[in-house]
Write a protein that binds this DNA or RNA. Sequence first.
DNA 1: TTGACATATAAGTCATCGCTTATATATACT
DNA 2: AGTATATATAAGCGATGACTTATATGTCAA
Lengths: 131, 131
Amino acid sequence: MVTEAIDIPVFRAVADPTRRAILDLLAAGERAVNDLLKSFKMTQPAVSQHLRVLREAGLVSERREGRHRIYKLEAEPIRAVHDWAGHYERFWTRKLTALGDYLDAAPDVPPPSGAGPRKKTHRKTGRQTKR
Amino acid sequence: MVTEAIDIPVFRAVADPTRRAILDLLAAGERAVNDLLKSFKMTQPAVSQHLRVLREAGLVSERREGRHRIYKLEAEPIRAVHDWAGHYERFWTRKLTALGDYLDAAPDVPPPSGAGPRKKTHRKTGRQTKR
DNA sequence: TTGACATATAAGTCATCGCTTATATATACT
DNA sequence: AGTATATATAAGCGATGACTTATATGTCAA
């Protein structure tokens, strides 16, 4: 049953292109909302709502300075995304090496049951589904 | 105006925990739909719909074998996610070094205009933008 | 052919998203 | 005090998402 598939807010937060753009802007330095707003053609509340999603995902922090709200990048949660994606690195590096074909032919994990591709020796129709 | 904030399907595809779970399962080897289905408590159409989203994002490929549809991980698009997240790596590694405080005190980019904490030299953290 | 199996697609439902306008809140500037 | 500025929050709305049940499509097996 897998692991009940838990939701990780940072994945949802960075799914939106506007929010990724905001993070990119903040990577260049802290900014007030009004300043961020100039980079988009949506309204101020829309930007504030995106900032809220980012804040709730722990991706930005907020500090008050006069009547301004200065937002700052908090990149640490992005690490989870980086780590997750990194687990797949071998799959795309494999493609680039001559070793690839060899590795592709070596099944790393036997499929737990049922309908997986059994043993290689890719016969086209050779299945013997015991069931 | 940023870059008009382009949507990259893989970010949306990967935002859903069920789809990440499917990718994780496929990382262990190709699997037919029925087999994947066993790992979840949703209906078969639901899984097929997730597979469609993954396929449209280029994250899986499909091959027919008898009446089974064997799905295979195509990890390459995940590279874009990994690369994107990698751009923020310096922000979390920075936190781990004693160098961090020094670097944090040096603002790399002056806020482009307007609404920054301008005027008012009342800054309690006397930083000069000189680098 | 008939029926069971494996999967996709269609259609519907309800929640969430991304946005808008309208308003509230807080600070600053006379 | 009153007004302007900077931002958040509320409420509403159409679009999309993640599911469901019902059905269609294709293959195997008798």
